[in-house]
Design a binder for these strands. Structure first.
Length: 431
RNA sequence: GGAGUGGUGCCCGAGUGGACGAAGGGGCGGCUCUGGAAAAGCCGUAGGGGCGGCGAAUACCGUCCCUCGCGGGUUCGAAUCCCGCCCACUCCGCCA
């Protein structure tokens, strides 16, 4: 949510910044400015009347105590009260509309974000590692997995429909190993606090981080209970501190959380239909930070570093892409997407997404802190990033570590988590 | 799911129609006392919003309004009475 004052004072600038995101909210902004003006007009009148009501009310009480008549005062109060009631009704009507508009206005891009219309305007900001040279044709992960017998696509469909799959045997073990490895890294080396959140949340949480009200069709919901399946651990973890006032000494707060993630992938028909790149349920290890506004952009850089270290330790080449204004999404001010090299497909695939939301989420979720003793409260800045998407990392690992005989070598850092397994052999060669 | 109890400030807790933004206690901050501390005493300690002043300010000053879980109602007037909702806890049922 943007600051209403900002929209009031610089509406044209706000419109312009949002147009850079490929969104047009000119009409909404104009309406907000108009509603805001009417809101304040009404407040002025209503408050003057309420002031009068308080004074007359005291006078009535005083006369009652002294046993004096107060009929003509009470008569006058009736009119005042009616008028107040009418004004307050009008006011809440206006505020309802105002709030619903404010919730669908996207965040503004940070000034450092490159301007562009779509993903073609994104900028590669770094590259790490040399893609391995194969002396055979590298396979895509779904073929490798089939050979190894570690992903069961058919039965996934039988259980839950398309875009679901089942991990079995060492595949399941590998998924679990990756989760533990990532969490341990972020806890032990990077100083994050581990959190195991609920996977279903109330509507308020989804509004707090920005998934609702605008992107309702993207989410799964248990309607009977109005509980929403989280599309990312960002939702429960950011909302941990909803409606809280944090101590400055606590900042920055850094959390790492594993969760399953649920996405309807509405509008993604035909995209990434093979393999496990785009599915309705996947595992992810998420990093979330709450920081002081002044430091949020440094914290974004270190967040990216923390995330890509996973790829470095796993020995997989990657690049980091900075999103342009047109590809930023609804809530982010600035965003980097680390992408891992997938030799079986000959392309880089997004395995993380690291964003600074500035105070956009904090304002929605009402997360504040006191900068100093006696100082006024401020909104914190929130950030988050995948560290990493587990399914895609597993897929990349299969493709990067595949051998000509169809086996896949397990990177050394994962072996302790794999019970010492060094290599997954094709099913036909296992007994 | 059934029955019951309850939601008040940073925390505990009083308050069943008017002098209550709210007793009392705790915590925290400041001051007095002290060589220093403890104890004791005094003072101060919520958030949001509007208007005006000054301004770069979401810094500061003044003033007013709102907020006792949330929303509505009764009343001249509601923390207090009525209705609906949400949440927490206890017991029963069910359950990993």
């Amino acid at each position: 949510m943007l600051d209403l004052r900002l929209i009031r004072e610089r509406p044209e600038w706000v419109k312009e910044r949002i147009r850079l995101k490929g969104d047009n909210v000119d009409a909404e902004v104009d309406r907000i400015v108009e509603l805001d003006r009417r809101r304040r007009e009404i407040i002025v009148e209503a408050e003057a009347l309420k002031h009068e009501r308080n004074i007359v009310s005291d006078e009535i009480a005083k006369r009652r105590r002294l046993g004096q008549p107060a009929e003509e005062l009470i008569e006058r109060m009736r009119d005042i009260s009616d008028r107040i009631k009418w004004l307050d009704g009008k006011l809440s009507e206006i505020e309802r509309e105002l709030d619903s508009l404010l919730l669908i206005i996207p965040n503004l891009p940070h000034e450092s974000v490159p301007i562009g219309e779509d993903e073609s305007g994104n900028v590669e900001v770094m590259r790490w590692g040399e893609p391995r040279q194969f002396d055979f044709e590298p396979k895509p992960h779904w073929e490798i997995a089939q050979l190894l017998g570690i992903i069961d696509f058919e039965r996934g469909v039988k259980l839950s429909g398309s875009r679901f799959y089942v991990l079995t045997g060492l595949g399941a073990r590998l998924e679990r190993a990756l989760i533990s490895f990532m969490i341990d890294l972020h806890v032990e080396k990077h100083g994050y606090t581990e959190v195991f959140p609920p996977f279903m949340v109330r509507r308020d949480c989804m509004v707090g981080t920005g998934q609702l009200p605008k992107f309702e069709v993207e989410a799964y919901v248990c309607e009977r209970d109005d509980l929403w399946l989280i599309p990312t651990a960002e939702v429960p973890v950011t909302n941990l501190h909803r409606d809280e006032i944090l101590d400055r000494e606590m900042l920055p707060l850094k959390y790492v959380a594993y969760s399953a993630c649920f996405r309807r992938e509405a509008g993604a028909a035909g995209k990434d239909t093979r393999g496990i790149i785009r599915v309705h349920q996947f595992n992810k290890v998420e990093l979330v930070k709450f920081v002081e506004p002044e430091r949020s952009y440094e914290e974004l850089e270190s967040l990216v570093k923390d995330a890509v270290e996973v790829l470095e330790l796993l020995g997989m080449p990657y690049r980091v892409v900075e999103m342009c204004t047109g590809d930023l999404g609804f809530a982010a001010s600035k965003k980097y997407d680390p992408e891992v090299w997938m030799p079986g497909q000959g392309r880089y695939v997004e395995v993380s997404s690291c964003s600074n939301f500035e105070d956009f989420q904090a304002r929605r979720a009402n997360i504040r802190y006191r900068p100093a003793k006696g100082a006024k409260l401020r909104y914190v800045h929130t950030l988050n990033g995948s560290g990493l998407a587990v399914g895609r990392t597993l897929a990349a690992l299969l493709e990067n570590y595949q051998q000509e005989d169809g086996s896949v070598i397990i990177p050394e850092v994962l072996r302790p988590y794999m019970g010492g397994v060094e290599r997954i052999e094709p099913q036909s060669r296992r007994k």
